Structures are given as structure tokens and as C-alpha cells.
Amino acid sequence: MIRRGGAEVTILARELRDGWCLAIELEGTSGWVGMGRKVRAELSARGRVAVSAFQDPNQIMMQVAVDGTPLCELNLIAGYFTRGQEAEGAEVESLLAAGFSRDGGPVGQAAQLDLGRRAVPALVAVTGVELEEARFDGPWYAGLAAPVR
């Protein structure tokens, strides 16, 4: 199981279009497992892209990994990269085009959004998948996460 501090976590997941999967982690009390380096490395291995995001009362963060390697981390409240400011690639360019910045505040579309609403356009910028309400309808797989070794 994926464990953080010995606690198992519950994951809900469903298939989206074009090979993407949406997974939602329900317990953040033991840390957000999906934000772990090993999890993102495995999910992005073999040329894939993995995006993890979380929100708690004091922060909203997003991390992107490509081909098993962390690419960047974005502070969605501040609107800029906290790691990977020098990172290059289509994913970074898409985030910059959406109004997030390398070292300043958000601009354009990102600056117009409430702080809690910046995660979705950032996810869409990287994945190209719109997160509409209909994406949450239909079958979901749920259970305790499996081990990451």
C-alpha cells in the first residue's frame, strides 16, 4: 500500500480520454501521498506526464513530472514556480501561457481567478483535459492504494 507515516490512503480513480486518468486522494491527514516524488516518478515513467495537486487551508500546490523526473512545482496561490524556475518543455510553456510565472505573480487569466480556482486551469494547461462536471459521472475505482517500491 502507499503509506505515509504508516497510514494507508484511499484513492478514487477513473479513466478519462486520450490515456489520462483522474485520481483523487481522500485522506490528507497523513500527508498527500500523490505529491511524493516516488509516486510521481512512477506515474510519469516511460515518457508519460504526471500532475499532482493539493489544497489545504494554507496552500495550494501543483507538481509536474515528465518521463520519471520532477519538472516543476507551482504555488497556485502566489501564481509562480517554487521549483524548476529554469525548467523548459511544453508543460512549462503551457503554464506560462495560462498566466503563471517563473518568479513573479500571476498575470492574465490566472490573475483574474480566485485563489482557490487556479488549480483547474493549471491542470488543463498541462494535460489539455477539461475538468467538467460530466467527467465525474460514471464508474470509479476505489480502494486502498497499493505499495510503491
Score class of each variant (00 low, 15 high):
A45D: 13
Q55W: 10
E15H: 14
P106T: 00
L74W: 01
L96E: 02
M35Q: 07
R3P: 06
L26T: 13
E73S: 10
F136D: 05
I24C: 09
T69V: 08
P147W: 03
L96G: 00
A50V: 02
V64R: 01
E133C: 03
V92W: 03
F54N: 11
G36S: 15
K38M: 14
G19V: 06
Y141E: 10
V107F: 15
G108N: 10
C72D: 02
P57Y: 06
G89V: 00
V33E: 02
D137T: 08
G105M: 09
L71N: 00
L123K: 00
S52H: 11
E91S: 04
E15D: 15
R135W: 07
P70C: 05
V64M: 00
I2E: 13
L131D: 00
W140K: 00
E130Y: 07
V148Y: 07
W32M: 02
F54A: 14
I60W: 01
A78L: 13
R17C: 06
F81Q: 00
G31T: 09
E86W: 14
R46F: 12
D56E: 14
M35F: 10
D137C: 11
A90G: 08
A110I: 15
R14E: 03
V107P: 10
L16I: 06
G31R: 00
D18Q: 13
V120N: 08
G104F: 10
Q55N: 05
P57H: 05
A134G: 15
R4E: 13
A97E: 13
L95K: 01
G89I: 01
R40D: 03
Y141V: 14
E15T: 13
V126D: 00
E42Q: 15
A90M: 03
P70S: 07
I77F: 04
P139V: 05
L76A: 03
R17V: 06
A111W: 09
E73P: 07
R135P: 07
A78M: 14
F81L: 04
L22G: 04
C21P: 03
M62R: 03
T69R: 05
A122F: 12
G138I: 12
W32L: 05
C21A: 07
G116Y: 15
R4M: 08
R48K: 15
N75E: 04
A87L: 14
L22A: 00
R46C: 12
G34F: 15
A125M: 11
A50T: 01
E132G: 08
L96H: 03
M62S: 02
R83F: 15
D67M: 06
Q55A: 15
N75C: 12
G36T: 12
I2Q: 08
Y141K: 11
G143L: 08
L115P: 12
A50C: 07
V51Y: 00
G19E: 06
T82W: 09
A119G: 14
L71R: 02
T29I: 12
A50E: 03
V39I: 15
R46H: 11
E91C: 03
T127F: 08
A142N: 04
A13S: 12
G104T: 09
P70Y: 06
F81R: 00
